[in-house]
Amino acid sequence: MLVDDVPHRRVHRWTHLRQHLAGYGFLSPWLLGFFVLTLGPAASSLYLSLTDYGLMSAPRWVGADNYMQIATSDPRFRAAMNVTFTYVLLSVPLKLVFALAVAILLNRGLRGLNWFRAIFYLPSLIGGSVAIAVLWRQVFAGDGILNQVLMALFSYEGPSWIANPSTSIYTLIALAVWQFGSSMIIFLAGLRQIPQDMYEAASIDGAGRSRQFFKITLPLLTPVIFFNAVILTIDAFKAFTPAFVISDGTGGPIDSTLFYTLYLYQEAFTNFRFGYASALAWVLVAIIAAFTALSFLSAKYWVHYDD
């Protein structure tokens, strides 16, 4: 579709040549970046993933050993998978539901829509910063705001949610859900696309509110839901900063916040096991690719594409 963008209108030969040159000239920064920062390193990390490589020695070929170890005898990998999947599988649906629910509420023609939209979007914009992770540590600490509020309202003395391995991951999920705003904005844009006359026609046919929601709103929004779900899932797999700051880089307590990317970071930059970490990286790429492929395969069963 790109090639047809430029019409072949009496383009002279020399102009042609000039176009080729100009094309590559303008593309050259990207091309350089592509080879030096993407293609080369990608090939190199594939190779490194098949070696044993630390700071002190040259890479030593070990074949699929790293991958074997990951698959069969790495308890921390299993912990990281557990944490990451819990995080992805809980935070993404919760975020979607929240984003959609609030978008629908806002779409009822509330006054001050722009204000609310901005307020809900703010956390998405700043949510990945260290400051917010610091704040989150405070909110869910033993003497944090959450427990203060619980005490004031219900006289309930809450635990330290961060220091408790069975609740720490949920503080990070809460942090993710708190950032539902950007998905909500995309939902709002999607809701605006639904033609009003469909609702009018449905009302005339006697369809009630909930029926309208399930028969019109939801089906017509499925492409947007799909899009949001894919983007959020990929992002969730790559989450790093909050877990790092909240656990002081350890993924603790007892690996309960050991996000996959955090484990990868530790292997690469604290243990300097570059070969093993490269293998971990490619496993992550494969997982994300598999998830994305599955979503696209599933799309034809539930995503409603009009015309």
Binding site: L37, P41, A42, F274, A277, S278
Partner: peptide, 9 residues
């Protein structure tokens, strides 16, 4: 492509 794939090299 996730950046992790090219991070170490």
């Amino acid at each position: 492509l996730p950046q992790h794939a090219v991070l170490i090299p």
